[in-house]
Design a protein around this nucleic acid. Sequence first.
DNA 1: AACCCGGGGGA
DNA 2: TCCCCAGGGTT
Length: 349
Amino acid sequence: MNFTKEIINWYSIHKRNLPWRTSKNPYFIWLSEIILQQTQVKQGLPYYDAFVKQFPTVFDLANASEETVLKLWQGLGYYSRARNLHAAARYIVFELKGEFPDNYKDLIQLKGVGDYTASAIASIAFDEATAVVDGNVYRLLSRYFGIETPINSTKGIKEFKQLASVLLDKDKPGNYNQAVMEFGALQCRPKNPNCNGCRLKESCVALQKNCVDNLPVKLRKTKVSTKYFNYLVCLDTKKRTVFEKRTGKGIWRNLYQFPLIETEKSLSIDEFALLNLNDTFLKDMPFDYTLYNEVDKVHKLSHQHLHTKFWIIEVKDSLNNATPLHKLKKYPTPVLITDFINEFNFEVL
DNA sequence: AACCCGGGGGA
DNA sequence: TCCCCAGGGTT
């Protein structure tokens, strides 16, 4: 049983028609790989189409503003991907004079491009024999070969990369790399893998040992922290509000939001009244306030649960540095804020 | 080595 | 609920 040939044969029959598979243009391959990091094909597909349409070449992407790129990325998550994508496009256009890096060593120098993505682009666009190891490959190899080394340990990362390199089809590395990932995604799924209909079932170690569900082994479950967010949604006499760009190194960097006050616990209306809002941009401003949502809106991220209250601040004056309400949807915002804006429906005010 | 970074979907 | 997803960057 030749693992590599079986995977390639399976792929020739079952491969999906995906837009980035119709071209070897490295820009399109790169774009698809960044979008698909930690993102399922179904979720990333509409974003890929939108990016190709709005930025047909790396020059178009480089000449756009970061805010425009973030706006198009809005809702997809892991926004550093969009910031790095944009920075790398500018680097390619303005430093490399538009000549796209054409090998693993140069590709991995790009912001947001690590071992996986450099291998994917190098093999698919440039036929370089570098093996990809993504979540699909970890799962498939750990099961088929019965490897119990944790996939997120230093030892595991090296071990699986080495094995993947041995299995790689050096003649058509791009085709094989896509095949092995596709096999993991469609056949050797995380839950309910299709072992009965699998052409590798006779030689699959995990299936023979009846431990398919226990592989791959992964260490360290991320602990989830809870945070309490209070957003100050101001409405002044000119139908404007305060909208700010997030700074710093935390989540949602360079996306926009209402002024945020983080607290140790969920605030009652009385407790909110004790906050000294005169220390903020509301200094010397007359205002009334109401609580928009009695029950905390809980926004769940992979590592944080955000318990959120939206406070509606009716300011009886004209705010400084305020944003007209009808312009809010022009800015890139996290889903938590996007949902609020849509639900609150400022436009009827 | 450990932690941070989003959001959606499946079971 | 918990886990996973065509991972990468920082400390």
